[in-house]
């Protein structure tokens, strides 16, 4: 297990080159190698969706993806949402605050990344389409209703 493999991953626009063990998950790579702690880990078996990131623009479970599998990929995490210069929150993040779409906030980065993908592909989703898109993310606090409202609010703000 100790044979390390050279791996190059671009995360939120920055290119990182590291020697990693093949067994290292992408989630652990992001969290512990790159110190991007916003991607959380909830179950490590691909059910809860807390660890969701975008890999080459597609939502994926970073706990089930090995870092070496993401070699050459572009990864977007919750840290990539904020405006880098001003620190201003992304409209999706602000909508989750304004519509009370979070309580403990541990699952929230996963919901934000899934929502980012949804609204990119479908700027005006119906409630059913929102529910379909978020069906793979567990939240134990909110009961989801305010999350649907947050996504709706974000969509309307992004459409301007």
């Amino acid at each position: 297990m100790t044979t390390r493999q050279r791996t190059t991953i671009t995360v939120n626009g920055t290119r990182y080159e590291r020697e990693v063990e093949p067994r290292l998950s992408l989630a652990d790579f992001l969290r512990h190698e790159l110190h991007l702690g916003g991607t959380h880990v909830g179950c490590e078996h691909g059910v809860c969706g807390v660890c969701t990131v975008l890999i080459d623009g597609c939502s994926a479970r970073s706990c089930l993806t090995l870092a070496v599998q993401a070699d050459g990929a572009e990864v977007t995490t919750v840290e990539g949402l904020r405006d880098r210069e001003s620190g201003r929150l992304h409209p999706i993040q602000q909508a989750f605050i304004d519509a009370h779409g979070l309580q403990c906030g541990f699952c929230t980065p996963g919901f934000l990344m899934t929502t980012l993908e949804l609204l990119r592909d479908n700027p005006e989703p119906s409630d059913d389409e929102i529910r379909e898109a978020l069906g793979g993310n567990l939240c134990r606090c909110t009961g989801y209703q305010s999350i649907v409202e947050s996504v709706r609010l974000a969509a309307s703000r992004l459409r301007g």
């Binding site: 916003g38 995490t77 949402l81 929150l89 993040q93 605050i97 979070l102």
Partner: peptide, 12 residues
Amino acid sequence: TRIEDPGLVAGS
């Protein structure tokens, strides 16, 4: 809105 939330949505 909650004062807890900015850090939570930022992942920080």
